[in-house]
Simulated scan of single mutants.
Amino acid sequence: MKYLFSILFIIGAFTSCIGGYHLGISLDPEWFARFGSLVVLFGVCSEYELYKIEKEKLFGQLKGQGASVFGGSGIPDLTHSSGHNLLSALSHFAVFVGTIVWGFGDKFLIWIGN
């Protein structure tokens, strides 16, 4: 399963966000913000794994290809799979949410607590 690491990183991102939220509510709002950094870390790691998969696919399909005018088979279809697109969107979302939580998570919990 080529997407295993990306899926695990996304799960780690959302688990960190939920765990940090619960620690922020029960202990100290700063915990929520600190866990935002883990969300960003896992999101970026997932995006990097997806990049590596896409790069290998691209280079693997282009190897030995050439213009059909010169006898090659031409450039193959290199569109992303729907699974890749979904994982990419979730990774981007994790990076976005994690960055907001990292910067303002403690202030948000203090605000909703009032």
Rank of each mutant, 00 (worst) to 15 (best):
Y3M: 13
F5L: 10
F5C: 00
I7H: 02
I7M: 03
I7G: 07
L8T: 15
F9A: 13
I10L: 09
I10P: 00
A13C: 10
A13D: 10
C17L: 13
C17R: 12
C17H: 09
I18C: 04
G20V: 06
Y21K: 05
Y21D: 01
H22A: 14
H22T: 10
G24C: 14
G24S: 15
S26W: 12
L27P: 01
D28F: 14
D28H: 15
P29A: 09
A33C: 04
A33E: 14
A33G: 15
R34M: 11
F35I: 12
G36Y: 02
L38W: 10
L38R: 01
V40I: 08
V40D: 02
V40Q: 03
L41N: 02
F42R: 01
V44F: 13
C45F: 11
S46F: 00
S46I: 09
S46K: 08
S46L: 09
S46Y: 05
E47T: 07
Y48Q: 06
L50D: 10
L50K: 04
L50H: 06
K52N: 13
K52A: 09
K52Y: 08
I53T: 15
I53S: 14
E54K: 13
E54V: 00
K55V: 07
K55I: 12
E56C: 00
E56T: 01
E56N: 09
F59I: 02
F59D: 08
G60R: 09
Q61Y: 14
K63A: 09
K63R: 01
K63Q: 12
G64E: 09
Q65V: 06
G66K: 07
G66M: 03
S73N: 15
G74F: 05
I75Y: 05
P76N: 13
P76R: 08
D77G: 05
S81W: 05
S81T: 15
S82L: 06
G83A: 14
G83H: 11
G83F: 10
H84Y: 11
N85R: 15
N85V: 10
L86G: 03
L86W: 10
L87N: 02
L90C: 11
L90G: 03
L90T: 06
S91Q: 01
H92F: 09
F93V: 13
F93Q: 06
A94P: 01
A94D: 03
V95T: 14
V95G: 11
V95Y: 02
V97L: 13
G98Y: 03
I100L: 15
I100H: 09
V101D: 07
W102V: 00
W102F: 05
F104P: 02
G105R: 10
D106R: 01
K107G: 04
K107N: 11
F108P: 00
L109M: 03
L109D: 03
I110C: 08
I110D: 10
W111P: 00
W111H: 12
W111T: 01
I112L: 05
G113F: 08
G113P: 08
N114C: 04
